[in-house]
Write a protein that binds this DNA or RNA. Structure first.
Length: 374
RNA sequence: GCGAAUGUGGUGAAGAGGCUAACACAACCGGCUGUGAACCGGUCAUUCGUGGGUUCGAGCCCCAUCAUUCGCC
């Protein structure tokens, strides 16, 4: 695909961390980046303008959810996702592989695809790699993901192998089915915690010439060292010239570990979800705004933050809004958490440019080291 | 002053003689990682207005007392 490519500007001298620009049909974005999740074609509680103001490069939306409601044909009729949700920046659609994984009890996997039951009304439905690509083409995101099976952890080598092989065949089928030339298609490395399978998956996908590659199957309850091993095994065999996307990772330490290893893109529901539930990422660690100690704390959330929330509101007010279950509170806290992560990415890019990513990472981790991880 | 009803945690209350007083809300504290998620989990009455009695055993039965509410003077 022509108008989609990664321009690597600099690689940190002491690590594999890299920074640069990802060119997409809806604008250029800097990497490494964090992508806010807007499953249902909206980052919950925020307007597209707000998301943009936070400095977010890409918004994620979900094939599975939009297929169920309102349906890809409605979105196509609206003129595609960008018009439908009034966002002119780059959009990425996840394939639904992860959703099918979380539907575990209500699905059946075969060579052809996955039969599953809608979580909305119990309808029996079917996804094949071709069907998913067809939906994603109708949705019209800039980056689309191929349909994969996200295997659980732990899992036997035997099952992981069988699954990886099938996911590779699905990747190939998706690639063949993909017709639109204005959408980048990413392949997804799987293979559980097994080095040989990750290698096989990454090598095989690399030969298929996707526009980018992502690492899937992490952040599903495995210990941190296992997660990082899976990333290492996968990354080793992926082409350096293409964007690399670590799916579903959004905690501060994991993101930094990922960047150090050469990951360019991250997405996660964590910042927005925990914000709606009253947890905030601050330069002093995580805080739960509902704690009684903030009842009369009229200081800002985070003195080092430049977001709208921190510049204009106090902890006491945020706590009040949260306790009173006011929508505005969830919005203010989502703004903050997203800005916090996005700002961290901005600082990480700068650190990479200046060959001091390791120092940056260590100082960040030191700040959070004794606190609970996000 | 007389009559009636009711007294269980911060609140609304279950509980009609038998294990550690249900449940909900509030409060307090956690968690959430390609959003089935404005969700989930934990803690929260050594004690039933008070005092006495009956009973192997009482929040539940009896007596007294206090309080509250309603009705009548």
């Amino acid at each position: 695909m022509e108008n989609f490519y990664l321009e690597i500007k600099h690689i940190d001298k002491k690590t594999k961390a890299r920074c640069g620009i990802l060119h997409t049909p809806h604008g250029n974005v800097e990497i490494p980046m964090f992508m806010p999740v807007g499953t249902l074609a909206t980052v919950k509680t925020l307007s597209p303008e707000e998301v943009k103001q936070l400095g977010a490069g890409v918004i994620l939306a979900n094939t599975y959810h939009l297929f169920l409601r309102p349906g890809e044909d409605i979105v196509a009729k609206a003129g595609g996702l960008h018009k439908f949700m009034n966002y002119d920046g780059p959009i990425l659609t996840d394939s639904g592989g992860f959703q099918v994984f979380s539907l575990q009890d209500n699905r059946k996997i075969s060579e052809e695809g996955v039969t599953f039951k809608s979580h909305l009304n119990g309808d029996t439905l079917f996804f094949s790699p071709e069907k998913v690509i067809d939906i994603e083409e109708k949705l019209g995101a800039d980056i689309i993901m191929s349909f994969d099976e996200c295997i659980p952890y732990p899992v036997s080598h035997e099952y992981a192998k069988k699954s990886v092989e099938r996911t590779l065949r699905w990747a190939e089928r998706g690639l063949l089915a993909h017709k639109r030339s204005d959408q980048a298609l990413f392949g997804i490395v799987q293979g559980g915690e097994f080095e040989d399978l990750r290698e096989h998956s990454a090598r095989a996908l690399s030969q298929m010439n996707f526009d980018g590659y992502s690492i899937g199957g992490t952040s599903i309850g495995e210990p941190k060292d296992v997660c990082l091993r899976m990333v290492d095994y996968s990354l080793k065999y992926l082409p350096e010239s293409k964007p690399r996307y670590l799916m579903g990772v959004g905690s501060i330490d994991y993101i930094l570990e990922g960047i150090e290893r050469g990951i360019d893109m991250f997405d996660c529901v964590l910042p927005t979800r925990i914000a709606r539930h009253g947890a905030l990422m601050t330069s002093k660690g995580r805080i739960n705004i509902k704690d009684a100690k903030y009842k009369d704390d009229f200081s800002s959330l985070d003195g080092e933050c430049d977001c709208y929330t921190c510049k204009n509101y106090t902890k006491a007010y945020l706590r009040h809004l949260f306790v009173a279950d006011e929508a505005f509170g969830k919005r203010l806290m989502s703004i903050h958490n997203l800005r916090f992560l996005i700002k961290m990415m901005e600082e990480a890019r700068k650190a990479i440019q200046e060959d001091r990513f390791l120092e940056f990472k260590d100082s960040m981790i030191k700040k959070y080291g004794d606190k609970r991880g996000f």
